[in-house]
Amino acid sequence: MSEPLLTIRNLRASVDDKEVLKGIDLSVAAGEVAAIMGPNGSGKSTLSNVLAGRDGYEVTDGEVRYDGQDLLAMEPEERAATGVFMAFQYPVEIPGVVNATFTRTALNAQRKARDESAIDAIDFLKRARATLARLEMDEDFLRRDVNAGFSGGEKKRNEIFQMAMLEPRLAILDETDSGLDIDALRIVATGVNAMRNPERALVVITHYQRLLEYVVPDSVHVLADGRIARSGDRELALELERTGYAAFQPA
């Protein structure tokens, strides 16, 4: 296997001077689906926020390499343009900005940053419609304001829609399964699975095992108290389902 697409080495990060990530080591190869599981407070959301580049997280040590680049040195929009996508646990409502405009603006901003030509409105619409159909989403989604008044499930599906439109090389799904009923979970999982290909890596961050029944991971990593406590294959997720996180909790 060549160099992993994502390599995290000894990553330490603090929030409000409290160390939350205490030396994370993890690598994910292109084509791989990696699941990061862990109990509440283990550092899952801090990890995803640090990877996305949100303010308020101080990296005190370690590094994150993505496709040979120093990910942590990049602005959030640079990370996006170079192919990193974050599906947020809590997608933001933006009243007044129409979903179609937003998605096309994002797509073309990324393309411009990569010196690619802009996608015109007609081609965009064609692709958007096909993607919506695949995700069993109404075309009305395009005309609505970004996430405004969306149900929890609609917000998550909108994240998957954006991911499908933006075609990232590394997608991080932060608790995408939370708040979804079984039908929505199935649709979201179908959308995620459709993204799997040998060029792309997916990192699925979750508390529960149930999304992994649909999106079968190649590797499973248990995050506990700011470190990867154990790594394994799909069997590890099933084991956690039986035993819970008790073994990984601080005594």
């Binding site: 580049g53 949100r54 929009e77 990370r79 933001v92 933006i94 994002a106 933006l166």
Partner: peptide, 15 residues
């Protein structure tokens, strides 16, 4: 809204 700004930037829009 800083959350909205971050959300937009995380999708590739410049600040």
């Amino acid at each position: 809204d800083t959350d909205a700004l971050f959300y937009l930037r995380s999708r590739g829009l410049s600040e």
